[in-house]
Design a protein around this nucleic acid. Structure first.
Lengths: 126, 126
DNA sequence: TATATCACTATATAAAGTCAAGTGCACTAT
DNA sequence: ATAGTGCACTTGACTTTATATAGTGATATA
């Protein structure tokens, strides 16, 4: 009963690349992907984005947008402070996340169908 | 962990495909991707996986593995209950996550290179 | 004999996310 | 003129989630 592990004493030689780790740590931030997904439709204001990315509350949305901005995925443009008028837009980096979203969509359609709770969403994808 | 309903009674926002939403909601679960990534190296036991996926604590690892098992990404095989000997392995579904990981790695290498670490990303800090 | 390992679990605490309400200005409808 | 709405957030109370630490009992190792 010790023939389970593929290697014994030393650790495995194949490491996970630091870049991949950093990417995963970023993208696993709650709502990050959904927000990016919402912004794929184009630049929009805070409240519009909040409606777009259903389920996120304003506090978290604000935090996440700040993070995404810091990381260079999103640009924030303040058109006027008072009355407030702002717009959020994906950078090139943000738009480059598209393949990831597509990969997730493909996988989900293939392997996540019929698992867990039903989703009654009836709209169509892009 | 909590169930997030992509759809709420009444108003729906179905511009994003439901499959994609479900996939994102799953993959944004903290440590989920890292765990899958660790298991890409092959079947392994709980503690070895814990070492592999740096930063995760046992409580969360256990919860996440349960979730991943429920959604069919991982299979758990109990070889002996006492003394405990278990192994975790990716299913076909789990292995099919590879393209997503690759997409994340590509993106990270290209766009996350010179960016200072996001403050919200805690965990494996060594 | 003593220690380490296995796969967890229990408990307590820290961190993160959520909810509701509120800010001050401009616009629309009354 | 007045009331109401929308904008982009912020605040503070509250709830959910994650973490650290310790411990289980058998067995293998030193």
């Amino acid at each position: 009963m010790k023939d389970i592990e593929p290697t014994k004493d030393g650790h495995l030689n194949c490491d996970i690349s630091p870049a991949l780790i950093r990417g995963m740590l970023l993208l696993q931030e709650k709502w990050a992907l959904l927000i990016v997904c919402g912004l794929m439709k184009g630049a929009m204001g805070f409240n519009e984005l909040n409606r777009q990315a259903e389920g996120v509350n304003t506090t978290t949305l604000c935090q996440r947008l700040t993070l995404l901005e810091q990381v260079g995925v999103v640009v924030k443009t303040i058109h006027s402070t008072m009355p407030p008028r702002t717009s959020y837009e994906l950078t090139e980096s943000g738009r480059a996340l598209q393949p990831i979203l597509e990969a997730i969509e493909d996988w989900s359609e293939k392997y996540l169908a019929g698992i867990g709770r039903p989703s009654a969403c009836t709209g169509s994808a892009e």
